[in-house]
Computed example of a mutant assay.
Amino acid sequence: MPNSKNFFLNGDHYYIEDKITLSELINYFNYNTSLLVLEYNNSICNKKNWNKIYIGNNDKIEIVTIVGGG
């Protein structure tokens, strides 16, 4: 897999062949974008940049969803 990249999402290891953005990744996993915080390589990533950042080899992505309760 010469063009494949591996990355970590919430501690799980994934491989991709295609060039995808953080926004595409979030949509693929069907996250509710209004209720999450995304950490990209140990930094909180602003939502306005999600469609500009492409996942690279060995990137670490953490997604935390916000859950309401009562």
Rank of each mutant, 00 (worst) to 15 (best):
Gly70Phe: 06
Asn57Met: 04
Lys60Ile: 10
Tyr14Ala: 02
Asn10Cys: 13
Ile63Leu: 09
Glu39Ser: 10
Lys48Cys: 03
Lys48Phe: 06
Asn51Val: 00
Leu35Thr: 11
Ile20Ser: 02
Leu35Arg: 05
Asn32Leu: 09
Ser23Ile: 00
Val37Arg: 05
Asn6Ile: 13
Val64Asn: 08
Asn51Arg: 03
Asn41Leu: 01
Asn46Glu: 15
Leu25Asn: 06
Ile66Gln: 10
Glu17Arg: 00
Lys48Asp: 14
Tyr54Leu: 12
Ser4Phe: 01
Asn32Val: 07
Asn30Ser: 15
Asn32Cys: 09
Leu35Pro: 00
Tyr40Lys: 00
Lys48Arg: 11
Ser43Ala: 11
Phe29His: 08
Gly70Val: 05
Glu62Asn: 11
Asn6Lys: 14
Lys60Pro: 02
Ile26Glu: 13
Gly68His: 10
Gly70Asp: 11
Asn46Val: 14
Gly69Lys: 00
Lys47Phe: 06
Asn41Val: 03
Lys5Ala: 04
Gly69Asp: 07
Ser23Trp: 02
Gly56Lys: 14
Tyr28Thr: 13
Lys60Gln: 14
Ser23Phe: 05
Pro2Phe: 06
Asn32Gln: 12
Ile20Phe: 04
Tyr54Gln: 10
Ile66Thr: 13
Ile61Gln: 11
Asp18Met: 05
Ile55Gln: 02
Gly68Tyr: 07
Thr65Phe: 03
Lys52Phe: 12
Glu39Arg: 02
Val64Pro: 11
Asn49Phe: 11
Tyr15Pro: 00
Tyr31Met: 03
Tyr14Gly: 03
Asn51Ile: 00
Tyr40Pro: 01
Gly11Met: 04
Gly56Asp: 15
Gly70Arg: 09
Asn42Ala: 13
Glu17Lys: 01
Ile63Cys: 05
Tyr54Ile: 11
Ser43Lys: 14
Ser23Ala: 05
Ser34Cys: 04
Tyr15Ala: 09
Ile26Tyr: 04
Ser34Pro: 00
Ser4Leu: 01
Leu25His: 09
Asn32Phe: 07
Asn51Ala: 12
Asn42Met: 12
Lys47Thr: 05
Asn49Glu: 15
Ile55Asp: 01
Glu39Leu: 08
Leu25Gln: 05
Phe8Ala: 06
Gly69Val: 00
Val64His: 09
Glu39Val: 01
Cys45Trp: 08
Gly69Phe: 06
Ile61Tyr: 09
Val67Phe: 07
Tyr31Ser: 06
Tyr15Gln: 12
Leu9Val: 07
Glu24Phe: 02
Asn58Ser: 05
Cys45Lys: 14
Phe7Gln: 03
Ile63Gln: 06
Ile20Gln: 04
Tyr28Gly: 04
Met1Ala: 13
Val37Ile: 12
Gly68Met: 08
Leu25Thr: 06
His13Ile: 00
Ile16Arg: 00
Leu35Tyr: 06
Lys48Asn: 14
Thr65Leu: 04
Glu17Cys: 01
Asn57Val: 09
Phe7Glu: 08
Phe29Thr: 01
Ser43Leu: 10
